[in-house]
Each structure stands twice: as C-alpha cells, then as structure tokens.
Design a protein around this nucleic acid. Structure first.
Lengths: 355, 355
DNA sequence: CGTTCTATTTGAAAGCTTTCAAAGGAGTCG
DNA sequence: CGACTCCTTTGAAAGCTTTCAAATAGAACG
C-alpha cells in the first residue's frame, strides 16, 4: 500500500504538506492542496493507524472489556458502544474476561500498549480496575465503568437505576396484593445486584412487610442458579407467591422450576425479571421485567469517553439511566386474591409503566 | 510507561539485547539475560504493540467483521474466535456492518492500516469481499469467511453443513407423516439460506412430494419476517401442516403467528427452526431446531487463520461443520395422523439426533 | 524595485520496536 | 602468545506518521 512518501512524490510536495492537507493542521494553498487530494484518491491511500498512533501517542481504538459476549445482556451494550464509536471514527477492541479478575488484568495491561483512546469496562468479580484506571488516567486515557462498579470506583460511570427499577417492580407486586414476596439476587458483590436488593427491601419496608431471611436467596446471574434457588423457595412453608428475580436469566430458571414443580406461573407464583431481554417476550408465559437499555448504556459510555477526549475536564460523572417496568404475563395477583378478581379478563400483549 | 531504552539502561545493556531477550531472537548470556528480565519485571514494562506492529509489519490483532453482534447467533461465533485468538496471544477488533456493504468496505479498508494478523468475516449482503481479500492476501494477511460466503469466494471458509442439516430436518418432518411442508427461507442471496433450501427440496423430492411455489417464502432472517410470511402460509388452501424455518428467529415469528391465528403448535402446525439458539429452549412450545455451533464456527475460523500464519501454505480450505437435529416440542405428526396416534404420551424434554 | 511582514511549505526529528551488519569477546589450537 | 573461529553484543537503520523550527514564497507598501 502506498505511504505518505509516495503521495508526496505524486503530488510534488513535501511530506509535511501531505500531512497538513490530511489533518487540516495548516493552510495549504490551492494548487498543491488538490494535487495531494487527487494523489490520495488515485492511490487509495489510507494513513497507517499504527504509525499515526505511535506518533500521536494515541489511537482511534476504544478498548471494551466485558465479562462474556455470550451473555445475552452484553451484546446490546457492545453494539451501543460500537455505534457511537464508529460514527465518530473510533473502533472497538473487544475483550472477554469471563469475570476472571486475572484475565481482566492481562487485558488492562496489554491494552495500554495500544495507546487506546479510552476504555469501557464492565468490571469482573473483585476487579482491580480502580488501581489500574488511575494509571490510565495519568496517561490521559479515559476509563468509563458500565453496568456495575468495582470497589471504590470514583471515576466516570454509566449504570441503570437499579434501585428504582427494583423498587418499582416490587411495588407493582405489592399493589397486586402479594404479601409473600421472595427475591433471588445476583452475586451481591456486584453493585447492581446489591442495589436491586436495596430497592426490593425498601418497597417491602414501606409496605411494612417482614422479610424472612429464607426469602432472599443469592446466586449467579444464570438460569441454573435461578432454577436451583427457586426450588429452594418453593419448598418453604409458607411458599412465596411472587419472586423478584435479579435478572432475566434467573427469572428464566425460576420459570422452569415452577413448571417442574407442577405449579403455574402466574396463577400460583408470579415471577418478575430484570433487564427485559429479547427472550422475555417469548417465554411461557412472557416475562414481566424491569427494562434497561443495554444499548443506551454502551452508547452513553462511549459518548462520555469521547466528550472527555474532546476536552471535557471535570469531576467524575455518574450517569444513571432510567428503567421502565415492562409488564407481560408472568405476574398476576396472588392465588387467594385472584379468586374473586378479574384474572380472566383479556390481557394486552404488553404494558409499559414508567418508573 | 517505561520503554525499551529505560530497560536497557536499567540492565546496563544495549537496546538490541533487550529485544533479543524479549523475543528469543538470539542467545543472550547469563548475567545480562537475568538483568534484563529483572528490569522488565521491576518496571512492569510491556512492549508497545504499535511500535512493534509498525516494525514487524503485522500486529497481534485479528479483525472480525460481522453483521450485528445483537443478532443472537453471532455472539457465540465471536466468542469462539476470541477464545482461540486470546489463548494464542491475539486480540479481536470487532466491526459490525449491519449487512451494509458500504460499511463493510469502510471496515475492510481501515482494518488494513492496522496491519492485522488476519481477518474473520461474515460477509454482508452483496459483499465485495472477494476483491478486497485478494489485496489482503497479497500482503500476506489471511482472510477467512464464516457462516456464509460472498459471490465467487475461493478462499478459506468455515460453514455449517446447511444442506445436510436442512435435509435431515425435513426428512424428520416427512417421517412424522407430514405431506404439506412449507419453508420460509432467509434471503436467498445468502449462501446459507440457499443451501438450506436445497436440502429441504432434496428431501421433498426424495419423498416424491410436489412443492407448490406458494409453499416457499423468502424473507429476512428475523422475527418480523417469519411472522409475516407465516401469516401468508396460514392463509393458503390447503394449509401447510409443517413449516421449516430458515433460522430460529424466523421460527420464533412463525410461532407467534400461529398462536395469533388461533392455531396450536405443534397440534395444528409443526415448526422447525435452524441454529438452535439458547432461546429455542424457552419458547412455547420449546422449538425443535437444527443445531449448529456458532462457537465452533468462530473458533475454527481463528484456528485456520493462525495455522496460515504459522506457515500453512496450501490450497484454500473449506471446512464444513456437522449439524445435529435437536428435537423439542414444536414438531409432531400432522393433525390427521395425530388422531389415532400417541401424541399424548409423555414427552422427553429434548432429544438429539445425529445428522 | 527593495523591504518588511505574513502566509506557506519544507525537512528533520521523534515516537518505539526489530533486525542486520559489524564489532567485540571468549575460547581453541598450534 | 598469536591467530583463528565462533558466539555475543552492539548501534544504527527502518518502519510511517506528526510536528516544530526554519526556510521560502508571496503580498503589500513605499
């Protein structure tokens, strides 16, 4: 591929002039200017991002570190980030950590040597990000945390309003008449799991309902966990009539367990999810869930990074995105209340409630 | 961050020696060797990938170009590729094209300037990849096509055995007694859609069944398309008793349409999908589908790329991965046949059939 | 036309590695 | 001890861009 030297020769100008034309970094008078542009077009020249990055001390790559692209919540986040990045001339370097803190460190250390424009990170378990990010920031590279925060994080972040989302979802269950509400949380060392639990408890407290410790179970954010913990909950006496799941994967496992136990959802047990993944629409019954936009999360994080890069120097920003309660058919009044109620009324496919 | 000069100074050796120690590119005698290693450890030095790439004329990045990470089939492919890449010291630069051929070209042109170790591409609509790949190959950069092939592709590729998968799925439907089989294909300019249709037709022909042209519909690989075309199919007289969907998203739309039309799946209409996405397990009823491993697709492609890089110079390889028919509850014998049959028997959760 | 000033243009340096030819050192043999 | 060989080590060049100081060209003015 052609390099700048050749362009310079073709256009009969010096190296510096070519660079100035390409980067608008100095005025170049007319005859030369077009000659350069034409040479570029004719040769299909594109500047080497490597050489450019080396010289400028920064590239147009954004490093994105996530637990696992295979987890259905993350693709939207990545896509949101990629779209915002791409339309501003940046590219995404994707790294999966599997929530493995050692793998995260490998990525953080290596990414540095690419001189990325910034980092978007969904931190792993027990992430060491706070320390590492400090060194990035000293080098002038922004780091934004998304979805959940590592210990002592004081930098930029974009998260959903987990507490409000959980609170509203729980209130909805309470308003339907449930009094025996249980919750299956994600791993409580994740800030998002913790916040959702706080929201849940706040709603319970407001309703002056006691929460037996059996009624809150903690597990991994997956179907297996949801399944296992639901079996535990269903074995309790008295049995909960509603389960607030820490995310949709847990809810999915819960749904499965309820069916396996020979119970019906929502008739016997209501199930509420969190995330509102695409699959929530197609489960049986369709899942009610707290909707958060992964796409917005990612796009906002990338935007924040770009703003920083364009000179926005200011205190750390903690952007919190609203959630929406998306009601489908997996929640209904509790069995006793349902007797006399109108549970057989025609139900709309899906209803949204702002939270 | 420290650079090689500092390491050299710290260890009291020359620049070249540091490089030799780091790359094992020449024997370095003992006292110096350890001094270098220690200096590296003490300073946390990591070589600049930019400078290294510039000098070596190639980096450890693999460019991965896919239509849309948000489409549930692709994350597994990406993950497979990333795992294989990561464990061999390579990293993934991810690009979404939205099947937009212009966007694909932008990515192909720009990626070149990163001097990537190779490219893994799921080509977009009307992809121009064949021409572009030629120029990559001239530069010694491998390009592997995954999942489907662009026009006139003669380079390396990794795909599923779409035809056999479709053939076996169709045969299964035939064996259940269906005679009115319809299919909703993906866009037929995609090789995978075309191959699946060929497999379907081959099975039909073997069964000596006539295929009315109404009975094959083409649409985009998504839920909306599946929904719309299913409504068309259900309006035909006589109505098909089984629908072979070009992929699971189409099948999902079909499922929806069947329910909306007041029919039951599988009692009135059997539905067979392709891909066997995670969500196939949780639809209502759980979807029977031709299972192909996206993960294997991606991992195999990355492996192929690395082999090439390590010197495997030989004719183009076309790796074709087997599929497995994964039977769940969305297929059953046709209504007439079901009358006297044992459709009420207890059904296992899921059954696999090698294809 | 000569000066002076401003606007363009240039060439070289720098950014960090790898690699190659050359220099240096150590060991062997006579 | 000298010559020779072979193994280590070195320093400089190259890879491609950006950027800065310096040089040149052009314009305005007298």
């Amino acid at each position: 591929m052609a390099n700048m030297h050749e362009i310079a020769k073709m256009a009969g100008v010096s190296l510096g002039t070519v660079s100035h034309v390409l980067n608008n970094t100095a005025k170049v008078r007319e005859p030369k200017r077009t000659r350069v542009l034409e040479a570029v077009k004719a040769s299909g020249y594109q500047p080497s991002q490597l050489a450019r990055g080396l010289r400028r001390d920064t590239t147009n790559m954004i490093g994105m570190i996530i637990p696992d692209i295979t987890n259905p919540f993350f693709p939207a986040v990545v896509r949101g980030a990629e779209d915002m990045a791409f339309s501003n001339g940046y590219r995404l370097l994707l790294c999966n950590t599997d929530n493995d803190h050692a793998k995260e460190i490998i990525h953080l250390n290596e990414l540095r040597t690419y001189l990325p424009a910034g980092l978007i990170v969904i931190p792993s378990n027990f992430s060491d990000l706070t320390a590492q990010a400090e060194s990035y920031r000293r080098a002038g590279t922004g780091v934004v945390c998304v979805d959940r925060l590592p210990k002592n994080w004081s930098g930029d972040s974009v998260t959903a309003d987990n507490e409000a989302g959980a609170y509203n979802a729980t209130r909805h269950l309470l308003q339907l008449g449930h009094t025996r509400l249980a919750t299956i949380t994600g791993p409580l060392h994740f800030t998002n799991a913790k916040e959702r639990l706080v929201g849940f408890k706040r709603a319970m407290k407001e309703a002056k309902l006691h929460l037996s410790s059996d009624y809150t179970q903690e597990t991994r954010y997956d179907k297996q966990g949801g399944h296992a913990k639901t079996l535990v909950l269903l074995g309790l006496v008295p049995r909960p009539t509603a389960i607030f799941a820490g995310n949709d994967m847990i809810a999915l496992g819960a749904l499965l367990a309820v069916h396996e136990a020979g119970l019906r959802c929502p008739n016997d047990v209501s199930i509420m999810g969190f995330d509102d993944l695409d699959l929530a629409e197609t489960t049986n019954p369709p899942l009610s869930s707290v909707s958060q936009s992964g796409y917005q999360l990612g796009a906002t994080a990338a935007r924040l990074l770009l703003d920083r890069r364009e000179g926005d120097i200011g205190p750390a920003k903690h952007i919190v995105l609203e959630t929406v309660l998306n009601l489908r058919h997996s929640v209904a009044p509790p069995p006793e209340a349902a007797m006399g109620s109108s549970s057989m009324k025609r139900r709309p496919r899906s209803v949204q409630k702002r939270t």
